[in-house]
Design a protein around this nucleic acid. Structure first.
Lengths: 415, 415
DNA sequence: GGACTTTATAAAGCCCCTTTCCTAACCCCT
DNA sequence: AGGGGTTAGGAAAGGGGCTTTATAAAGTCC
């Protein structure tokens, strides 16, 4: 809301760490060049991160006549981050080191009828416990746990205000989780998690304006505007999946007709296939993943039905993505999440063409449409990134009273 | 791009002046409360504005035991601002005092076939000269001239990159105008002009997130995100009018089919009327203004055809505005420009209902949909506001070298 | 006229970032 | 081996901003 010089510091801190993670090891000089900051500022920020043991000095660069550059790298063992991706049918948890490499994974299935908050929380707690023991990490090193839950969330209070798939209303998810999980918790929804993952580590890195299109069972758009996530007034911006693309079109689970999601979400794609070729062997009724995978294979082998289904899907997707291009004029549109990953470049190529047909030429010329380069579950990565952001946020805090340098942290600290 | 503490200062300067213009006279105390700034900061900013003669001290408030509050007010005669709204068929120019009251108006018709850049520039020059003499202002008091021209513009270089209505390509409009006009010139397009007018003086005042929907011959959406205008990477964000709302729908002048504009722009509304009632007496072929006005009157008298046309239009408008609500999650959606002004509250009521049918309940609940309160041509006002912003921007600039306070401008400088 | 209250300005402190200066560290050459 | 030349990195100074605290100014009330 109110901007202060501290926000600049925080943004710079993010930027420097992001750069180090992206290119490790690196030198202060390179960081200054990459971020546009002065050498002095970079040096102090690097110093901060060294103090936090998030990075370490790892030797020197070869020199050709002059003092060699000191190199810093992510201190992979300096801490761990956990990302939790809660979805309709599963809970997926990954534990990352500070280089955002996956150290451990756990997955729990959420069966229909197990969707009470307490049940889901139990799954999450079990999976989190599992990854921590798997990785053999001492608890104190976990900097935080990011949790992505579908629907509308209030990140300040940690409440899941509304989760459409389970009809949750105002579930105090963070409170429930904190009974089992002692680490700092950060809550948001998958749209924003995926967007922040792309912003830090994916195709949106360095962009001031980007749109991250999530294509999964549900679909949505994470908005990166002015270098940061746009949340809207009640943290529900980006609900692109329920925009009407066909007036009086297919019935959507949201109750409306003709939503984008009903044509380009995984169930929508299955329906596209069924309408085109009702008894195609590509169709695996009731199994989205299998069907999408079959389509992907079909694309590669040139199966005409698969090609036609993807083209048909890309037609809707193109018109809808063109909306985003016209409205935001972004540098890049990233197609992310599992459907995009499965269908891959062939889909992107079709989408590019379709968008070009619908968008205005000028904004279109300024926009790249690319596939996400993130190989793992982007929602997990993004959730972990929220935890990383959280850990960095509290760095700048003044330490309590000024005369006595007493402790202000939650633990005792007899200095 | 890169944020610095100076940007904070500029934003605060804007905010304080905005507040003074909105509520004049006012005290430093009130300003501090309204802006959330400390009294000291407000005092220095007020001091700056006093030095610029943009505001003046106008006495004191009644006191009940204590030093009375000094009151400041806009110094209406402290300068003048000119807004130029170039449209397909006319050039509209208004001269404002610093309270943004209209002191003089001029309008020139642009006939078909008069659309060469030189001809349009001549119209603008004539009208600008006219308002200056009408208002009896000495030239030195004009702080700047804002120019709104349709299409895509590069505000830094002052080039109209592309104007679809006249097929202009890369016309150096500011260079051409500066032959005739000695004041500082600021160029942008009407979408953004209208948005900035609403942001400073209209229904979006104080909002962090707002969408300003411009309904005229063309339509578009100005995006206010994080308290400032969102421009996109090539200054063409907000082209909502050419989003596809009906696949394979009506042919648009942009070459595509089914654009929003073709259903809710003035020509689109005429077409809606014609389709519904081909020989209605409401229809004035070839005259958009007359037709829209006739519809407005019809709404008031309960003419069933008019009611049905507006309802029909609101249906498309509702679905399209719902896109904006879902995507941005704004605090307020403002309907602005002449079609909205003409059809007024009855239109807004229909739109509210239609949007509610298409948007998700949560974002919808957080969003108000309102009519613009700006009585005059918002593009003119917005253009003038660009000039005002420009005048304020250059306040903070350091004056040249520090030892000798000599000039450092582009002119010769023998140091 | 003094006491109390409220406003406005001045001073000091803190947080940023940058520029400048100086020392450290390394290469190469003599 | 010992001096230049060159580049890195840190410390200090400087400029901009905002806030809190102290002080001066301008009223009202008794």
């Amino acid at each position: 809301m109110k901007r202060t010089s501290r926000d600049i510091r925080t943004a710079n801190r993010y930027e420097v760490l992001r750069q180090i993670i992206a290119e490790s090891p690196t030198s202060r000089q390179e960081l200054a060049a990459a971020t546009g900051l002065s050498l002095a500022t970079v040096a102090t920020l690097v110093g901060e991160l060294l103090d936090l043991h998030m990075i370490t000095e790892v030797g020197f660069e070869e020199s050709a006549g002059g003092r060699p550059r000191g190199l810093v790298a992510v201190n992979a063992s300096g801490g761990a981050l956990i990302g939790v991706d809660i979805a309709e049918t599963y809970v997926h948890v990954e534990l990352f080191d500070l280089g955002l490499n996956v150290l451990a994974r756990a997955e729990e299935d959420v069966r229909p009828g197990e969707s009470l908050p307490e049940q889901v929380v139990a799954h999450v707690a079990a999976a989190v416990g599992s990854v921590v023991t798997q990785a053999g990490i001492e608890g104190a090193r976990v900097l935080g746990v990011g949790v992505s839950v579908p629907g509308q969330v209030d990140r300040a209070t940690g409440i899941s205000e509304y989760a459409p798939n389970w009809d949750w209303h105002d579930v105090p998810l963070v409170d429930l989780l904190s009974e089992y999980i002692a680490y700092p918790l950060y809550l948001d929804n998958p749209l924003r998690a995926v967007a922040v993952a792309e912003l830090w580590f994916g195709a949106a890195r360095g962009s001031q304006n980007a749109v991250v299109v999530t294509l999964g069972t549900g679909v949505g758009a994470g908005l990166v505007l002015g270098g940061g996530l746009h949340r809207g007034v009640s943290n529900s911006a980006g609900e692109w999946g329920h925009n009407t693309i066909v007036l009086d079109g297919r019935l959507c689970r949201c109750g409306n007709h003709g939503c984008v999601e009903t044509y380009v979400g995984a169930p929508g794609i299955m329906l596209n296939l069924r309408e085109l070729s009702p008894d195609s062997e590509l169709l695996h009724p009731g199994d989205q993943t299998a069907t999408i995978d079959a389509l992907a294979r079909g694309m590669l082998t040139g199966d005409p039905v698969a090609v036609e289904v993807v083209r048909h899907t890309a037609r809707y997707l193109g018109a809808s993505v063109a909306h985003l291009v016209n409205l935001f004029n972004p540098e890049v549109v990233v197609l992310s999440s599992w459907v995009a990953a499965a269908l891959g470049e062939p889909l992107v190529a079709e989408v590019r063409e379709a968008v070009a047909r619908h968008a205005l030429p000028r904004p279109m010329a300024a926009t790249e449409i690319v596939l996400s380069p993130i190989p793992t579950d982007p929602a997990c990565l993004g959730a972990a990134t929220f935890a990383l952001e959280g850990a960095l946020q509290s760095v700048g805090q003044r330490s309590a009273t000024k005369r006595t340098t007493s402790a202000r942290s939650s633990t005792h600290n007899p200095r």
